[in-house]
C-alpha cells in the first residue's frame, strides 16, 4: 500500500471516487437486469420494438452523476449485449446507446434547466432507435427507410413511459442517498 495524502479534502475526494465507482457498478447491474426483464416480456409488435427500460438508468446517471458515468454504463451495457446476444446485437446496442446519450447530453448542454424530463426521455428513445436503424442499415447494406414510422411512434411511446418511470422513481432513489 502506498502512502496516501491524508488531508481531509483528499480523503473526501477519494471517498467520493470510491462511492462513484460502486454506484456506477450498481447502476450498470440495474440496467442489465432491466433489459433482461424486458426481454422476458413478449411484445405484441412483429418487429423488434422495445421500451428500453434500461434507458431509465442511463438518464438517471446523466441527471445525478456525470455524463462520463452515463457513457460508461451505456458502453458496458453494449458489451454485455455483445457477450450474451452476439456481435451484431452488441453493435446495434452500442450505436443506439451512443446516439441516445449524445442527443440527451446535447439537449441538457444547450437548454439546461429549461428542458423537461419528458423531452429528454422522448429524444433519447427516438435517437436510440435512429442509432439502431443506422447500424442495422450498415450491417445489411440497405437503408431501412420503411422502418421509420414504426420507430418514431415506438420511440415516442417508449420515451414517455421511461421518463415517467424515472420521474416516479426519483423520490425513492433520493431516499437511498445514492447521489454524490
Amino acid at each position: 500500500m502506498k502512502q496516501e495524502n491524508n488531508t481531509p479534502r483528499a480523503e473526501t475526494k477519494k471517498q467520493n471516487q470510491i462511492k462513484r465507482t460502486a454506484l456506477t457498478g450498481l447502476l450498470f447491474a440495474l440496467a442489465v437486469i432491466l433489459s433482461l426483464v424486458e426481454s422476458l416480456v413478449p411484445v405484441p409488435a412483429p418487429v423488434g420494438v422495445r421500451l428500453g427500460l434500461s434507458n431509465i438508468v442511463v438518464m438517471y446517471s446523466l441527471f445525478f452523476l456525470r455524463g462520463r458515468d452515463a457513457l460508461i454504463i451505456a458502453i458496458l451495457k453494449s458489451f454485455f449485449v455483445m457477450m450474451t446476444r452476439g456481435t451484431v446485437a452488441g453493435l446495434l446496442s452500442l450505436s443506439g446507446g451512443l446516439f441516445s446519450l449524445g442527443i440527451m447530453m446535447l439537449l441538457l448542454f444547450v437548454f439546461r434547466e429549461r428542458v423537461s424530463f419528458l423531452i429528454i426521455g422522448v429524444s433519447g428513445a427516438l435517437f436510440h432507435n435512429f442509432g439502431q436503424i443506422l447500424a442495422a442499415s450498415v450491417v445489411l447494406g440497405s437503408v431501412l427507410w420503411y422502418y421509420l414510422p414504426i420507430l418514431i411512434f415506438s420511440g415516442l411511446i417508449a420515451g414517455i413511459v421511461t421518463s415517467f418511470l424515472l420521474k416516479v422513481s426519483i423520490p425513492a432513489l433520493k431516499k437511498l442517498q445514492l447521489t454524490i
Partner: peptide
C-alpha cells in the same frame, strides 16, 4: 427541472405528425 412543460405538447405533436 420539471417533468413536463406546456410547450412539450407541441414538440411531441410535431414528432407524432412526422411519424404519421
Amino acid at each position: 427541472m420539471k417533468y413536463a412543460k406546456k410547450s412539450d405538447i407541441l414538440v411531441i405533436a410535431l414528432i407524432a405528425a412526422a411519424g404519421l
